[in-house]
């Protein structure tokens, strides 16, 4: 464990807590893409298949459980909770995310660490996570002004993978036999997708104006 990875995990956790706060405090999921939340739930379920077979540390196991439970709870809440689901922007959340699923799985069959069930699903989760934010970013562009909590949610979600890139650079220089090309390249793509969001987020923070993504 290094400071970059720990900071990244804490930012990831923060993004989930901010999203939970938004949904439970405002009893609304307006501006949140259900499709992105479904993709994230799949990412965690596909990535943590080794939850009960490979014990790494208490921290690792607890965080995996937190990510799986929180992501499925958010999807459940946006679909089933009578009050919350009324505020879901169904007509705006129209990104065809099944293409992202199919493309990620196809790529995982071709490019993986080892052609085993667990490794294919691990690579699938890595590729899917890189593109999972797309429905959310498209929804933000369509829904015009973005409320603070939603903006903070996306910001922390983007920042966490940027810290993971620092973690991979650090591990590359400090550990022998360290190579995580699949995660690293995918992480670079993932962070790059947030580039324009980060730019408009910084502008809104600097000018102290409402965050607005150009359509």
């Amino acid at each position: 464990m290094n400071i970059f990875r720990f900071a990244g995990d804490m930012m990831h956790l923060t993004s989930i807590l901010v999203l939970l706060l938004k949904i439970y405090a405002t009893k609304s999921c307006s501006g949140i893409s259900l499709k992105t939340q479904e993709l994230y739930a799949l990412v965690f379920l596909a990535r943590y298949l080794d939850l009960f077979t490979d014990f790494i540390s208490v921290y690792n196991t607890i965080m995996k459980l937190v990510f799986i439970v929180s992501s499925t709870a958010i999807v459940w809440c946006m679909k089933r909770d009578r009050v919350v689901r009324r505020s879901y922007d169904k007509q705006l959340d129209t990104f065809r995310h099944y293409f992202l699923l199919a493309a990620s799985f196809a790529l995982a069959l071709l490019v993986n660490e080892k052609f085993t069930f667990q490794e294919i699903f691990w690579a699938f989760s890595i590729y899917l996570e890189a593109v999972a934010i797309l429905p959310q970013l498209v929804l933000l562009q369509r829904s015009g002004n973005v409320d603070n909590l939603t903006g903070q949610y996306v910001f922390f979600l983007g920042a966490y993978r940027a810290f993971y890139i620092l973690n991979w650079i650090y591990r590359y220089f400090t550990e022998t036999h360290f190579s995580r090309w699949i995660a690293c390249i995918s992480g670079l793509v993932q962070t790059a997708l947030y580039a324009d969001f980060f730019y408009y987020y910084y502008i809104s923070w600097k000018n102290n104006t409402k965050l607005k993504l150009p359509a």
Partner: peptide
């Protein structure tokens, strides 16, 4: 032969 890599990251 490097040891089989387990995914120790989240």
């Amino acid at each position: 032969e490097p040891e089989p890599k387990i995914h120790d990251e989240l």
